[in-house]
């Protein structure tokens, strides 16, 4: 019985995590995230952190930044990327991005664009030679 209760608990936490994964671009707050898992806010924060090592707010921030990285790599402007992942202002986005990624969004984007250019011009540059030789990629 205890095992089933534990599984049910985990299913509710996972439901909340998946809710963040799917709705990160919307204006979420802890109340509507914890509501997804049918928990009180503080109980929810404690259980979520124990399962994922981050508070729901920090996890939401990480998901938003991860998705912004993908959009920036695809060439979206910093403003559009920040709005697309749920930030209210490009300033708060730039601050959070630099804190988590270590560089400003524009610097990250420039590096990614350069990488894509190199890949396009010379894709083998990113492939270790053991794979090039054994997998026939040089032919």
């Amino acid at each position: 019985m205890e095992q089933y209760e534990k599984m049910y608990l985990y299913q509710r936490i996972v439901k909340a995590k998946l809710f963040i994964d799917h709705h990160y671009a919307a204006p979420l707050d802890l109340d509507n995230i914890s509501g997804q898992a049918y928990f009180s806010k503080y109980h929810f924060i404690r259980l979520f952190k124990s399962a994922y090592g981050k508070t729901p707010s920090n996890y939401l921030l990480q998901v938003r930044i991860d998705n912004a990285k993908m959009l920036l790599a695809k060439g979206l402007s910093v403003l559009d990327a920040s709005m697309s992942v749920g930030f209210d202002s490009p300033t708060s986005f730039a601050g959070a991005f630099k804190k988590i990624v270590g560089v400003a969004p524009s610097v990250y984007q420039r590096k990614q664009v350069e990488k894509q250019k190199i890949i396009k011009e010379n894709p083998l540059r990113y492939v270790p030679h053991c794979f090039v030789e054994t997998h026939g990629l040089s032919k």
């Binding site: 599984m7 985990y10 995590k17 998946l18 124990s50 399962a51 994922y52």
Partner: peptide, 13 residues
């Protein structure tokens, strides 16, 4: 993973 039961439930879902 940090928490197998949570990861298991998520991946199953």
């Amino acid at each position: 993973c940090k928490d197998l039961l949570a990861t298991y439930e998520e991946l199953k879902a």
